[in-house]
Amino acid sequence: QNEKLANELKSLLDELNVNELATGSLNTYYKRTIKISGQKAMYALKSKDFKKMSEAKYQLQKIYNEIDEA
């Protein structure tokens, strides 16, 4: 289960640069939040902690959705 979550989180991290570029014309909230979420996700992957990875995955998905809707 950890392996599956780690792969999903890696996949979301692969999209980080594209989504970060998409924040160029948006409010600074999005820029700041996506950077923080990305850092948390990288830390969670290194720690291999299921709870941290779950939270990081949720945060990344949430900010990606917010950027898409903005």
Rank of each mutant, 00 (worst) to 15 (best):
Q1M: 12
Q1K: 09
Q1S: 09
Q1D: 13
Q1H: 10
Q1W: 10
N2S: 11
N2V: 15
N2W: 15
N2M: 14
N2G: 08
E3D: 09
E3Q: 08
E3G: 05
E3S: 07
E3H: 06
E3P: 03
K4E: 09
K4H: 07
K4D: 09
L5I: 07
L5S: 01
L5F: 02
L5T: 03
A6D: 02
A6K: 05
N7R: 14
N7C: 12
N7W: 10
E8C: 15
E8L: 05
E8F: 05
E8Q: 07
E8V: 04
L9K: 00
L9V: 03
L9C: 00
K10E: 06
K10V: 04
K10C: 05
K10D: 02
K10N: 04
S11F: 09
S11T: 11
S11I: 11
S11Y: 07
S11L: 12
S11R: 14
L12K: 00
L12V: 01
L12C: 03
L12W: 02
L12F: 02
L13H: 01
L13C: 02
L13I: 07
L13T: 02
L13Q: 00
D14L: 11
D14Q: 11
E15Y: 14
E15K: 14
E15N: 10
L16D: 00
L16P: 00
L16V: 03
L16R: 02
L16M: 07
N17Q: 13
N17I: 12
N17G: 11
N17C: 14
N17S: 13
N17H: 14
N17A: 14
V18T: 11
V18N: 11
N19K: 15
N19T: 08
N19I: 15
N19V: 14
E20A: 13
E20Y: 14
L21T: 06
L21C: 09
A22S: 07
A22K: 15
A22Q: 09
A22G: 05
A22C: 11
A22E: 04
A22M: 14
A22W: 09
T23D: 05
T23K: 07
T23A: 15
T23E: 04
T23P: 04
T23V: 08
T23N: 06
G24K: 14
G24H: 15
G24W: 07
G24S: 13
G24V: 14
G24Q: 14
G24L: 14
G24I: 13
S25V: 09
S25L: 11
S25R: 11
S25K: 13
S25I: 07
L26P: 03
L26T: 03
L26M: 08
L26N: 04
L26I: 04
N27E: 08
N27A: 11
N27F: 04
N27D: 13
T28R: 12
T28P: 14
T28G: 13
T28I: 13
T28C: 15
T28W: 14
Y29N: 04
Y29E: 05
Y29W: 09
Y29S: 04
Y29H: 06
Y29T: 03
Y30E: 03
Y30D: 03
Y30I: 06
Y30Q: 05
K31L: 08
K31T: 05
K31A: 10
K31I: 08
R32H: 10
R32G: 03
R32Y: 13
R32A: 06
R32K: 11
T33A: 15
T33W: 14
I34K: 01
I34A: 02
I34C: 03
I34G: 01
I34F: 04
I34S: 01
I34D: 00
I34Q: 01
K35R: 10
K35S: 06
K35A: 09
K35E: 08
K35N: 06
K35T: 07
K35L: 11
I36M: 09
I36G: 03
I36N: 05
I36P: 00
S37Y: 14
S37H: 11
S37P: 01
S37C: 15
S37N: 10
G38I: 15
G38H: 10
G38S: 12
G38D: 01
Q39E: 10
Q39G: 04
Q39T: 08
Q39V: 10
Q39D: 08
Q39P: 02
Q39H: 06
K40T: 05
K40P: 00
K40W: 11
K40F: 14
A41E: 01
A41Q: 00
A41R: 00
M42G: 03
M42K: 12
M42I: 11
M42Y: 09
M42L: 13
Y43G: 08
Y43M: 15
Y43I: 15
Y43R: 13
Y43T: 12
A44T: 00
A44C: 02
A44F: 01
A44L: 01
A44D: 01
L45D: 01
L45P: 00
L45C: 02
L45Y: 07
L45V: 03
K46N: 09
K46W: 09
K46L: 13
K46T: 09
K46R: 09
K46D: 08
K46E: 13
K46I: 12
K46V: 10
S47K: 05
S47C: 06
S47I: 09
S47E: 07
S47F: 05
K48G: 14
K48C: 09
K48V: 02
K48A: 06
D49W: 03
D49R: 02
F50L: 06
F50K: 04
K51Y: 08
K51D: 10
K51C: 13
K52N: 05
K52P: 01
K52W: 05
K52G: 04
K52D: 04
M53G: 00
M53W: 01
M53I: 03
M53Y: 04
M53E: 00
S54A: 12
S54L: 15
S54N: 10
S54M: 14
S54R: 11
E55S: 05
E55I: 11
E55P: 00
E55Y: 08
A56N: 00
A56I: 03
A56G: 02
A56S: 04
A56Q: 02
A56F: 02
A56M: 04
K57L: 15
K57G: 02
Y58R: 12
Y58S: 10
Y58L: 12
Y58M: 11
Y58K: 13
Y58W: 09
Q59M: 13
Q59R: 07
Q59W: 15
Q59A: 10
Q59P: 01
Q59G: 06
Q59H: 07
L60R: 00
L60D: 01
L60T: 01
L60I: 04
L60F: 02
Q61E: 11
Q61D: 03
Q61R: 05
Q61V: 07
K62E: 05
K62D: 03
K62S: 05
K62A: 08
I63V: 05
I63D: 00
I63K: 01
Y64V: 06
Y64D: 00
Y64L: 14
Y64E: 02
Y64F: 11
Y64W: 06
Y64T: 04
N65F: 08
N65D: 09
N65V: 06
N65K: 14
N65A: 13
E66D: 05
E66N: 04
E66T: 04
E66A: 07
E66F: 07
E66V: 04
I67G: 02
I67K: 03
I67C: 02
I67P: 01
I67T: 02
I67V: 04
D68Q: 15
D68R: 15
D68I: 15
D68H: 15
E69P: 04
E69T: 09
E69F: 11
E69Q: 13
A70G: 04
A70H: 05
A70W: 11
A70D: 04
A70F: 06
